[in-house]
Nucleic acid binder design. Structure first.
Length: 423
RNA sequence: GGAGAAUUGGCAGAGUGGUCGAUUGCGGUAGUCUUGAAAACUAUUGUACCGAGAGGUACCGGGGGUUCGAAUCCCUCAUUCUCCGCCA
């Protein structure tokens, strides 16, 4: 949620920031400012009436206790009218308030100046590309064939038991997955992130806090009977731990990590994009989350990017980094960097991490604040990133490390898998 | 799932219809005293919002209601604890 203060003070900048998303927000902004003013006026008026009412009530109390019944009755009758007025004003304030917050909630985050303009993934900006794939095969196989050949993943079994997009991992496939999770968590720990194991379902308030609700309701599985949502990413529980929090000073830099399965409905996906491990309804991911004061955000972001880079390098994967253009950047983010690994068998780039800063967009919804050096409350900044999402990493490892002898496990991963090759 | 008890400021804990945003203790902050510290004493110490300001409004688990007036009465939901049932 954009801060109303920001809209008021930097109207042009806000409109420009939204324009980069292809949004013509001028009229919406205009309306927000009008409703905001109406709300303020109504609120002031209502408060005055309340103050009057309070004064009268106290007066009545005094008269009663000093025995002046008649006088008290007169005042009581007076207050009846005022009370009606107060109720009407209150309703109006609430209406305006709702209208206002709805309008503001509907606005996506303002993009940072360095975000390139553009409509879709085609126009993302390539900012880094690493070396080449280690595979020596002239016609490398796709991971779904390799998974079958070595009995690592069983897609059909998943369809039988649950449905498409819920595969079984088995044998060395399951172990590889477990090894990757441990490896990523350990790397995050070493980088100073505190590990959490979180709930996998969240309530509606949490969905609101990080911005999945109300805008992207359809992405999450909803358990109707208990009104809970299966998390689409660990970001939701990890960030919402800090909902309604006022940090006591500005001496903080919160770094948390966690592994969770992620559940996504992925309605409307089809074709080769969903083949094999490319897009699943349930997948494992290790997430890193940071809560920072504004001064530290830039360096935190760089640190996170370096962290993800180092993971991919340790795994020996060919990868590239994209700075997403306006049209491709998510609702809540002010800037996003995507990491993609090269998948030799499919000759395709697969997204394995998305590192974003949200500025105060989430913390405003979350009411996550800190006291600055002048003891004033200010909104924290939040950032998060995948480090990393598993299935596509598995896909890339299988495809890039294949050889006639089998699939070679990258050196740093061997202590976690307990085997060096899948054959 | 059933029965009972509870939920008050950073913590502990008073308060059952009328200057209660809330007694008190601890803690925090500032000061006095001290060479320094401790102790003692004094003062201060919640959050959000409206208002140019003076000031005002709201908040005693959440929501609703009764009343001129609610922390206090009523309804409802949530959470915690105890007992029973069930269970990894």
């Amino acid at each position: 949620m954009i801060e109303i203060q920001r809209i008021k003070e930097n109207r042009a900048e806000v409109i420009a920031g939204l324009k980069k998303r292809g949004l013509d927000s001028e009229k919406d902004i205009e309306k927000i400012l009008i409703v905001d003013q109406q709300w303020r006026d109504a609120k002031t008026e209502h408060q005055e009436t309340s103050a009057n009412l309070n004064t009268i009530s106290k007066e009545v109390g005094k008269l009663f206790s000093s025995g002046e019944r008649n006088q008290a009755e007169v005042l009581k009758n007076q207050s009846v009218e005022l009370k009606k007025q107060e109720a009407t004003q209150k309703t109006r304030v609430e209406e305006l308030q709702n209208q206002l917050s709805k309008a503001i909630m509907a606005l996506p985050n303002i993009l940072r100046p360095e975000v390139p303009s553009g409509n879709d993934a085609e126009e993302n900006e390539l900012i880094f590309e690493s070396g080449s794939s280690p595979t020596k095969e002239s016609a490398p196989k796709a991971h779904w064939d390799l998974a079958k050949e070595y009995q690592l993943i069983d897609f059909e079994l998943g369809v039988k038991v649950t449905g498409a997009g819920f595969p079984f991992y088995r044998g060395k496939g399951a172990k590889l997955q477990r090894a990757l999770i441990s490896f990523f968590l350990e790397e995050a720990s070493n980088a100073g992130y505190e590990e959490f194991s979180s709930p996998l379902m969240v309530n509606e308030e949490s969905g609101m806090g990080t911005g999945q609700l109300p805008d992207k309701e359809g992405m999450m599985y909803h358990v109707g009977e208990d009104d809970l949502y299966l998390i689409p990413t660990a970001e939701v529980p990890l960030t919402n731990m800090y909902r309604n929090t006022l940090l006591p000073n500005d001496d903080f830099s919160i770094k948390i990590t966690g592994h969770t399965p992620c559940f996504r409905r992925e309605a409307g996906s089809y074709g080769k994009d969903v083949r094999g491990l490319n897009r699943l309804h349930q997948f494992e991911k290790v997430e890193i989350v940071r809560i920072e004061k504004p001064e530290n955000v830039e360096s935190a972001l760089k640190e996170m990017l370096d962290h993800v880079k180092s993971l991919l390098e340790k795994l020996g994967l060919q990868y590239r980094i994209l700075k997403l253009c306006g049209g491709d950047t998510g609702f809540a983010a002010s800037i996003t960097y995507d990491f993609e690994v090269y998948s030799a068998g499919q000759d395709k780039w697969l997204e394995v991490s998305s590192v974003s800063r949200f500025d105060t967009f989430q913390s405003n919804r979350l009411k996550l604040r800190y006291k600055d050096e002048n003891k004033k409350s200010k909104l924290c900044h939040t950032l998060n990133g995948s480090a990393l999402a598993l299935p596509r990493i598995v896909a890339a490892l299988l495809e890039n490390n294949q050889s006639p002898q089998g699939i070679k496990i990258p050196e740093p991963l061997v202590p976690y898998t307990g085997f060096k090759i899948i054959n």
